[in-house]
Nucleic acid binder design. Structure first.
Lengths: 153, 153
DNA sequence: TATTGTTATACTCTATAACTATA
DNA sequence: TATAGTTATAGAGTATAACAATA
């Protein structure tokens, strides 16, 4: 790994001032996860958010968009785009909601279910790649800490 | 915390299908961190990335933009905008680089140094808020796991 | 009046391609 | 020929404001 003397050498740049800052560490780790996940889902026509939306619809048939927005922690306005894409792909339908005619009951199609199952397996493999080298206790510690930071539990 | 029966109730939405997926947990926790950090830095005219850039310039006087890009894990093109903003605020200067006239030697100004010190204290307080309730060993476990995911260590 | 889904819009983050001036 | 900084641009994520239909 020789490098020409005139080329940018980043090895002597100190980021110690940022390493004691959890947001910086999380952002950098998440960038790696995001890049691998994007590559994992792209061949199936999904992204992290459309995959997450599809998963929630599959697991919660009849889910309404506003519930989906809450579950994804995003605004209702943004969910419209995700559902549009899933609907255009033929994986999700906007069914009528008899109890509230303002709302829609989101359902996945047979094809949508199949795409989800395939994507889920790929995401599981991605997850194992990301956590490779970490012991079960360490993974549990991370999940606990993330839950605490998120304000759950 | 009473809620009208007709209002969106998200408590019965299951996201178990996503909770065993580290990217989802990281994203949600990072959203919380990001929101708090944005509110923390906004009064000082900084954002996460401009703060990070300022920190690296303060701690590495004479840093060149391409080194800054590597340290921040972003493309050179994006660094231009961050440095523009820090320069317009009067916190950073693009000094000449005698060894390589294509490059700039980034330096912080006296005011920039003062803004950084103030922001650093605010970020430390933010960090304590985020990690509140976690023991030192747990924080160490998170940082170790994040380093592993990021591919460092 | 308040809520649901929607549209329009804007800002941030990130990447790629192409340009210029240097090396 | 390759690199440093820059410009232009595009896509993704996120948020707010305002609207029509419905509660």
């Amino acid at each position: 790994m020789a490098r020409a003397a005139h080329q940018t050498d980043v090895s002597d740049v100190s980021d110690a001032c940022l390493r004691d800052f959890v947001g910086y560490n999380m952002k950098r780790a998440f960038n790696v996860v995001q890049a691998d996940l994007t590559a994992t889902l792209e061949p199936m026509g999904l992204r992290m958010l459309t995959y997450s939306a599809l998963a929630l619809i599959v697991e919660n048939p009849g889910l309404r968009p506003s519930q989906l927005a809450s579950a994804l922690s995003v605004e209702r306005a943004n969910v419209v785009v995700y559902v549009d894409q899933l609907e255009e792909a033929g994986w999700v339908t906007r069914g009528t909601c008899p109890q509230d005619r303002r709302a829609y009951a989101l359902q996945c199609t047979i094809v949508g279910r199949r795409v989800y199952d395939k994507a889920r397996a790929a995401v599981r493999a991605h997850d194992r790649r990301m956590l490779d080298g970490l012991r079960a206790v360490e993974i549990a510690a991370v999940n606990k800490a993330l839950a605490r930071i998120e304000g759950r539990e």
